[in-house]
Amino acid sequence: MTIEEKVIEVINDYVSSNGTASKMTSDQLYSLVTATYPMNRNSFLPADYCYNRTNEGIDFERHSHLFERTDDGNYLVLGEDYSYSGPVYY
């Protein structure tokens, strides 16, 4: 199982149990994922999984989207296949 698949599984399970109203810091997201799949916390970057942000070098259309980054630097936990319709920042 790839790191991306592990992150997707944990976040989708979380959303299935808790809905899409949760707001978390990067540290909370790392803790959530590593509690299920022990790995180096630098193995994934929450910013790479955002609906509303992308970085050069990431194929935005092919990469999984799980979070919305908020103005305060935290993340709304939305899960895969969320119907996001807001702006995307590069």
Rank of each mutant, 00 (worst) to 15 (best):
Y37V: 15
A21G: 07
G79I: 03
F67A: 03
M39V: 04
N74F: 00
G73L: 04
S16W: 03
T25Y: 03
A21D: 15
D72L: 00
E80D: 13
E68F: 00
M24C: 05
V33A: 10
S17F: 02
H63Q: 15
S64P: 13
L76N: 02
T70C: 10
T36Y: 02
Q28E: 15
G57N: 05
L29V: 06
L29N: 06
L29C: 07
L45K: 05
V33R: 06
T36V: 14
V33E: 15
N74I: 00
T34Y: 13
S22N: 09
D81K: 08
Y30E: 14
E56K: 09
P46C: 07
N40D: 15
S64G: 06
N42H: 11
T54A: 05
Y30C: 01
I58H: 13
S83L: 14
G79W: 01
T54W: 13
N55Q: 12
T34F: 06
H65M: 08
Q28L: 09
Y37G: 13
R53W: 12
Y75N: 00
S83P: 03
R53D: 09
P38G: 07
D81L: 03
V77I: 02
H63G: 05
M24A: 01
K23C: 10
N40W: 07
Y51W: 03
I58Q: 07
Q28R: 11
L78Q: 05
D27Q: 14
T25R: 08
L45H: 07
L76F: 01
K23F: 14
E80L: 12
G79F: 01
Y49S: 01
Q28C: 03
D27L: 10
R69I: 05
L45R: 06
H65P: 02
A47V: 00
M39F: 13
A35N: 14
R69T: 03
E61N: 13
S31L: 09
D72P: 00
E61G: 08
S22F: 02
N55M: 07
F67D: 03
G73R: 01
Y82W: 10
L45A: 10
R41C: 11
T54I: 06
